Amino acid sequence: EKVLKRMREIKNELLQAQNPSELYLSSKTELQGLIGQLDEVSLEKNPCIREARRRAVIEVQTLITYIDL
């Protein structure tokens, strides 16, 4: 939940920025750090946690791809 919240904050900052190119590098670095945090999530045998992590990774990767474009 914390990762998704921060990812959404970054997305809003990028969309509202007057000059978003200044934010791209720092935002991309922070998003890659969020992916690292998601990699540390213990998936164990809980399919709900596994699915939530998968969705979060996809959302963060989508935003990274947007920045790259």
Score class of each variant (00 low, 15 high):
residue 3 V to C: 05
residue 3 V to L: 15
residue 8 R to L: 12
residue 8 R to V: 09
residue 9 E to S: 02
residue 10 I to S: 02
residue 10 I to F: 00
residue 10 I to Y: 00
residue 11 K to S: 07
residue 11 K to Q: 11
residue 13 E to C: 08
residue 13 E to N: 12
residue 15 L to R: 06
residue 15 L to Q: 04
residue 15 L to F: 15
residue 19 N to E: 11
residue 19 N to L: 08
residue 19 N to V: 10
residue 20 P to F: 03
residue 20 P to T: 07
residue 22 E to T: 09
residue 23 L to R: 05
residue 23 L to A: 06
residue 25 L to R: 09
residue 25 L to I: 02
residue 25 L to Q: 12
residue 25 L to G: 04
residue 26 S to N: 02
residue 26 S to R: 11
residue 26 S to K: 11
residue 26 S to M: 06
residue 26 S to P: 04
residue 26 S to T: 07
residue 27 S to M: 13
residue 28 K to W: 05
residue 28 K to P: 00
residue 28 K to L: 07
residue 29 T to V: 13
residue 30 E to T: 03
residue 31 L to G: 00
residue 32 Q to R: 05
residue 32 Q to G: 04
residue 33 G to K: 10
residue 33 G to D: 12
residue 33 G to W: 07
residue 34 L to V: 00
residue 35 I to P: 00
residue 35 I to M: 10
residue 36 G to M: 10
residue 36 G to S: 11
residue 37 Q to F: 02
residue 37 Q to M: 11
residue 37 Q to T: 10
residue 37 Q to I: 14
residue 38 L to K: 00
residue 40 E to N: 09
residue 40 E to W: 03
residue 41 V to C: 10
residue 41 V to W: 07
residue 42 S to G: 14
residue 42 S to N: 09
residue 43 L to Q: 13
residue 43 L to C: 10
residue 44 E to I: 04
residue 44 E to C: 12
residue 45 K to C: 13
residue 46 N to E: 13
residue 46 N to M: 03
residue 47 P to R: 08
residue 47 P to C: 06
residue 47 P to W: 06
residue 47 P to N: 10
residue 47 P to M: 07
residue 47 P to E: 13
residue 48 C to L: 13
residue 48 C to K: 13
residue 48 C to W: 08
residue 49 I to R: 08
residue 50 R to E: 14
residue 51 E to W: 03
residue 51 E to L: 05
residue 52 A to F: 03
residue 52 A to C: 07
residue 53 R to A: 15
residue 54 R to P: 02
residue 54 R to N: 12
residue 54 R to W: 07
residue 55 R to V: 07
residue 55 R to N: 11
residue 55 R to K: 12
residue 56 A to N: 02
residue 56 A to K: 01
residue 57 V to L: 11
residue 58 I to Y: 14
residue 58 I to N: 14
residue 59 E to G: 01
residue 61 Q to F: 02
residue 61 Q to A: 04
residue 61 Q to P: 04
residue 62 T to D: 12
residue 62 T to K: 15
residue 62 T to H: 13
residue 62 T to A: 15
residue 63 L to Q: 01
residue 64 I to W: 00
residue 64 I to P: 03
residue 65 T to H: 03
residue 66 Y to V: 08
residue 67 I to D: 05
residue 68 D to N: 13
residue 69 L to N: 15
